[in-house]
């Protein structure tokens, strides 16, 4: 906090010098001091309602998500909240089958053999074989995408969320090569062409072409004390909480159920757990 304030004062100071413009230098210094006095008690902090954790984690109970119909509202809730463009919208003037290459998804469904390619077997039981799985960014405890980013545009937050800073991303796509879960999408084109004005959530920004995007664990909702959109839309099939709080709902579920994670053997520490 202290360093933030200092940084802010510096910025304010510099801008004060800017205002001075043609005024004599002495005058400029005087106005800088004025500025400092005015900004001395500026405070930047979290909202009181904000939810915090050491490592946010999710437990997806696949027993409660039987069919595509069960997943659809969850995916829709996420993609609507975050203005994720639907490049495969056949009603859009820009629609083209080839748009498949540029698809953007934060959370989507996969068959077991694709969600868990290393755990797949020919003689899988019928339920798992036909069960749609929800996949999204795993918000790994040891994320390879964060390791490779040359600008820290993707970074691990204090609460374990692997977040994208869209302002800083240069679009090198190293993170897409590094992610072993295919969780990242690139804006090959302007996404706005595929977001209808009436569908747009005005409270969340869209993206611009040339940056990578992915699930943000609803950082913007946690900041005001709300659960992630997918959790809210899941009718209790998805639990969300702090992995390192023994009292949290996710820990309770992990204690009493056998869970699996995607490509656990790679050492990335995925924070999405599946009850199968």
């Amino acid at each position: 906090m202290e360093s933030n304030r200092r940084k802010f004062l510096k910025v304010a100071g510099i801008s004060a010098l800017g205002i001075a413009g043609a005024k004599p230098v002495l005058n400029a210094f005087a106005s800088e001091q004025e500025e400092e006095a005015q900004h001395a008690d500026v405070e930047i902090r979290k909202n009181e309602k904000a939810l915090t954790a050491r490592q946010w984690a999710m437990v997806i109970d696949t027993r409660k998500l039987q069919s595509e119909e069960d997943l659809k509202p969850i995916i829709e809730a996420c993609h609507k909240t975050h203005n994720v463009p639907d490049v495969m919208d056949t009603e859009n003037a820009e629609y083209d089958e080839d748009n498949q290459r540029h698809v953007i998804k934060w959370i989507w469904e996969e068959e077991y053999k694709h969600a868990f390619p290393t755990k797949s077997t020919e003689f899988l039981d019928d339920r798992l074989k036909n069960l749609p799985f929800l996949v999204l960014c795993n918000h790994c405890e040891n994320p390879p995408c964060v390791r490779v980013c040359p600008t820290k545009a993707t970074f691990k937050r204090e609460d374990g969320i692997v977040l994208m800073d869209f302002h800083r991303c240069i679009g090198c796509r190293f993170c897409m090569a590094a992610c072993p879960y295919g969780s990242r999408s690139f804006n090959f084109r302007d996404p706005r062409e595929f977001i209808k004005d009436e569908d747009r959530n005005p409270e969340f920004p869209t993206r611009m072409k040339g940056v990578v995007e992915k699930c943000n664990f609803c950082a913007e909702r946690l900041a005001v004390g709300k659960q992630p959109a997918c959790v809210e839309a899941s009718n209790g099939a998805i639990a969300f909480g702090d992995l390192y709080d023994p009292e949290s709902e996710v820990r309770q579920l992990l204690k009493s159920n056998y869970t699996i994670r995607r490509k656990q053997g790679l050492g990335t520490g995925p924070a999405i757990y599946y009850i199968v």
Binding site: V148, I170, G171, G210, V211
Partner: peptide, 22 residues
Amino acid sequence: DLGQPMRLFNVILHPTPGSVLF
């Protein structure tokens, strides 16, 4: 190859020794 080539300088503004691309 960059999606946002005008932000190239970010690699120097935010040097990241952990990144092989750096």
